[in-house]
Design a protein around this nucleic acid. Structure first.
Length: 256
DNA sequence: ATGGTAGAAACTCTA
């Protein structure tokens, strides 16, 4: 039986809940990782999602960040945050669904190369790498997905020359992404053919979506054991065409 | 040309 997992940076779950419910009804993914919920936990729409057939776990805060996992079957052994990296920002949430360990990430944006937030991003990614090395040993069936805020290769950027050296596409960020891959992950999207210039995020400004001036910064990495079972991958741009969209499109991967 | 838009919240920060 095929198993589908998705990731979507919703940029405010309060605003995007109607779009999310519609999207869940249409795609019926088995597990979903959300980022930028921007909700404190007492405001999380657990009842609405339960009515849609999803169990939920979440780690939120006011105004910024916030992650959540949704699944049709129970989410077990939940864990919060990066170990050995004290952080008030709610960016990491883990759980086991249908025997597959799922880690939802909202990687720091980094703001601009050389800024304090950029240094925080690189330190955060180094801590992530150390942790995922251990997680891979513990969980052979491991999915790490979310908003990585890194476009890993030229093919993932509408204009690599324009973006060269910029945050989301700087060499240290790309190096950090490739070190994650080298731990033993596969970028599920690139296991299947896609049209050129397929992206997952477009700036709200300057008609970037209409002009397809996007980046592919949302990723679903799967361990080698799961990579052998991949049967498809997709970025669903439809929600980005709606009124009042998130700036990110959902990404999906199916495992047989 | 260093802009512009969106979200949350509070007249600014983050992305």
């Amino acid at each position: 039986m095929a198993w589908t997992v998705a990731s979507w940076n919703v940029n405010s779950l309060k605003v995007r809940l109607p779009q999310l419910l519609e999207w869940l009804a249409h795609h019926r993914p088995d597990a979903v990782a959300l980022q930028e919920t921007k909700l404190e936990d007492d405001k999380f729409p657990a009842l609405e999602l339960a009515a849609a057939g999803y169990q939920v776990v979440f780690a939120g805060q006011k105004t910024y960040n916030g992650v959540a996992l949704l699944a049709r079957d129970p989410i077990e052994a939940c864990a919060y945050g990066l170990p050995d990296f004290a952080d008030e920002q709610k960016r990491v949430l883990s759980g086991t669904v249908n025997g597959i360990r799922v880690i939802d990430l909202y990687v720091p944006n980094g703001q601009s190369v050389g800024s304090e937030k950029y240094a925080y991003k690189l330190n955060w990614l180094a801590a992530l790498e150390r942790w995922l090395e251990q997680e891979l040993r513990q969980y052979p069936n491991l999915v790490v997905l979310g908003d990585f805020n890194i476009a890993p290769a030229d093919e993932d950027v509408h204009d690599p020359w324009e973006w060269e050296g910029q945050v989301l596409f700087s060499e240290p960020e790309k190096a950090a992404f490739h070190k994650l891959i080298e731990l033993g992950f596969v970028d599920s999207f690139r296991r299947f053919p896609h049209p050129p210039k397929t992206f997952s995020w477009w700036d709200y400004r300057l008609n970037a979506f209409k002009r397809n001036r996007g980046l592919r910064i949302d990723h679903i990495l799967v361990s080698k054991a799961l990579a052998a079972r991949l049967s498809g991958s997709l970025i669903d741009v439809a929600p980005r065409t709606l009124e009042r969209p998130s700036d990110h499109a959902p990404v999906l991967t199916t495992i047989d």
